[in-house]
Design a protein around this nucleic acid. Sequence first.
DNA 1: CTGTTAGCGCATTCAG
DNA 2: CTGAATGCGCTAACAG
Lengths: 349, 349
Amino acid sequence: MKGPEAGRVSIKAVAAASGVSPATVSKVLSGRAEYPVRTETAERVRQVARELGYVPDVAARNLRTRQTGQLGVVLEAVGPSEPDNLLGEPEASRAVSRTFDGAIMAGLSGAARELDVPALVVYPGGQQLARTYLDGRVDGLLVSCDPLRGHDLLERLSGTALPVVALWSEQVPPGMGAADVDHAGGAAQAVNHLLELGHTRIAFYGGGQASGVEHFQRREAGYRGALAAAGLTALPPLHDGTALVEAVRRGTVTAVFAETDLGAAAAFQALSGAGLSVPQDVSLIGFDDIQGAEYIAGGLSTVYHPAAEMAAEGVRLLLEQLAGHPPRQVLLPTRLVLRDSTGPNPGGD
Amino acid sequence: MKGPEAGRVSIKAVAAASGVSPATVSKVLSGRAEYPVRTETAERVRQVARELGYVPDVAARNLRTRQTGQLGVVLEAVGPSEPDNLLGEPEASRAVSRTFDGAIMAGLSGAARELDVPALVVYPGGQQLARTYLDGRVDGLLVSCDPLRGHDLLERLSGTALPVVALWSEQVPPGMGAADVDHAGGAAQAVNHLLELGHTRIAFYGGGQASGVEHFQRREAGYRGALAAAGLTALPPLHDGTALVEAVRRGTVTAVFAETDLGAAAAFQALSGAGLSVPQDVSLIGFDDIQGAEYIAGGLSTVYHPAAEMAAEGVRLLLEQLAGHPPRQVLLPTRLVLRDSTGPNPGGD
DNA sequence: CTGTTAGCGCATTCAG
DNA sequence: CTGAATGCGCTAACAG
């Protein structure tokens, strides 16, 4: 039984118990080949260490080696107690990140595990505090950017010696890595899908207040780009349910690309409230593939948002930087998820 | 300009620059009253520290003080790369935690910020690895319990000197704190709401495979308890859409309490596919208040699941334990969220 | 009130 | 191949 004393076994105790010096124990347990130790001795030391329940003290190790192996994480959405935003940030922005914080953590954890990062240090201050990330707690920092405010932190960090990778950000100060989702590309996938179904009158549903959110702007840009590439022009964006219903009734639009799945849900609610059906009267496609998307609009066609993959990529990028490579910027590809809310264009065009 | 050299300013440099000894600097910057320092001196030291951009080295501090102020976190859902479960864990279990990991992190972060916890250390190994949490990285550990596997880890941890608080767990080994959601109470709130609307034939929708999940069992128990308290007997549980539709058509049930919001979404889909409407033909209430619940079933009445609050409470409990208080177990109250999927019982009874 | 001394536990020299 | 000596940066004890 190792017992509660396990934490108190130091390298010195192991050394004494196995009849070697602390230095030798350290060499053995470091596992590194550049320290030649007789196999026999090494074996015995390892055995004794195991028996004694030796656990290396990371504080001492960190102090000595001047690094931790740990990566820092700044999450953007830090909970209900976060002070209200002074900039009048649209609610949509926060909702997006709240939706994906779980996925972010999952992606980070998965990558960390695979790449042998012993721990992730989450700074609870979010991006509010100008606190220091340079206190030696971590070797590098992942910043999950607020679409509206993230850049401040990045700017402040850009002068420091701390390697940084931005998540959810395409543009970063020089010297930083970045991983983001290809919002424009995803929007184009959605629009192309509708085009292939024969639709030509395709509207964008969303925008309005939330247009301050860069991701959504890129989605709209992707939508416009895909239409332009097909020789079509974008219709005026639909900002609410009544405008949508009206446009569908008039036959002005036969398909709708919603900014988000939640937007698609709202659109569907307006539509079905007006007696219009999906996809018979109008095709509907969203963006995000949120949990429960299969229950929206009788099974929502949408674009998968690779938040977890992006986070995992961020870990890889940061580790790359720590290994001395120059920072890179990466855009993660989305993927169509087709369910039942999109169908062929019934009309002539 | 502090510049990239900020991290290299040690307490010794500050001492030299302000003409005092390192110890005095330490005393000043510790801010603790038990070390009396002349206000004048203190002022000067602080000033110099600021000018030099001094940042305390946590590794050194941790080594010296034998504590970190940091709290460890073991999240259960650790992403897509998690090795498949050998126990045949129902998908539902994972879905629940994935849904709430974002909320958990938000709650932890918020509480950590308010209570001046400098950082949360997330162990990426999840509950898979038997890795050590005793390496001095953290002063205490929060374990977000897998409904099925969490207890193993808790057992293994219960012999150690590390203070532990379990999240999402009612029963814990002696000596541990715990915070959980009051699933049974929440279910009772839902059922009581239906009873107040005049329903007496109230069915539980869910169970089936997922019945291995303790939380869901407690929800069902709460449902039964509330009915029993009203002098009613529970109906046979409905495990799928067809059973549900049939029961409603027969008039056997007039109201349904679904195990989860996602379950409610599935129920609604089956119902509306069969031409039945909510709440006219049958009232429907869920559990969780997931994002998008307002779009389920035309606005789902449900029970708010205080995951973030539970996590925040966990931080408080752990800090309490670290301060020497005995561990406590806390159940977080749920709250009804009424929307449009529940209505009065139209029938005679 | 302030300075001096002594280590926290480990990883790295450099001798042997 | 192994061991003795050194110090990472800080803070707790004690001496002034």
